Simulated assay, not measured.
Amino acid sequence: MHLLGTRTARAAATVSTAVALTLAPLAGSAHAGSEAATVHGCPSGYVCLYPNASWNNDQPAFKWYRYGSYNLSNQYGYKRFFNNQTGDAKARNCLGYNGTNCQGNQRAGTWYDYDYTPYNSVKLEP
């Protein structure tokens, strides 16, 4: 009888783990519970741009750390934009150069795929 009870407990634990993994959020948030972690090749505190609408084997094309504006050139089509900053720091895509005519405020810990054809700069803000 003890063997049957052990098998039942193991089966219940396996089902519980599978259910917990299935319910975990996937899209839009990439933090795994630690704000001090490198996620998909993007170090904590950075904003990263990937060369396409994927994690690109954890190889961002750009990594930005300091608040301010960063001009882009020859960036077209869909790319993944990941704000791995901490706290309330924001990241924005801008139509103009030097962080002008910016669109939206992407919160820290989130990622989205954007068409970069109209964008000419990225701006990081506290």
Rank of each mutant, 00 (worst) to 15 (best):
G28K: 12
S44R: 00
P51V: 05
A37H: 01
V47R: 03
N56P: 09
W111P: 04
A20D: 15
G45W: 00
R92F: 02
A30M: 15
W111Y: 13
S73A: 14
T17M: 15
A91D: 00
A13Y: 00
N84Y: 02
L21Y: 11
C42L: 01
S16V: 15
A36Q: 12
W64Y: 09
L95R: 09
G41D: 07
G104I: 12
R66G: 03
W64L: 04
L26D: 12
D58T: 06
T14N: 13
N98I: 04
Y76H: 10
T86R: 10
R66V: 06
S29Q: 12
Y50D: 01
C42P: 01
A36Y: 15
Y70S: 08
P43M: 02
V19S: 13
G104S: 13
Y97V: 12
N105L: 05
T100A: 06
L23Y: 14
T17C: 14
R107H: 05
L21V: 12
G33H: 03
Y65T: 10
T17Q: 13
A32T: 13
T14F: 10
T100K: 01
Y67S: 07
L23W: 15
N84E: 10
L23N: 14
K79P: 09
E35F: 07
F62I: 00
K79E: 06
A89Y: 08
C94Q: 04
A24E: 13
A27F: 14
Q103I: 13
G45I: 01
T100F: 03
R92T: 04
L95K: 06
Q106K: 02
G87I: 11
G45C: 03
C102T: 09
R92A: 04
A89P: 09
H31I: 04
H31G: 08
N52R: 08
L72G: 13
Q85C: 10
A89S: 13
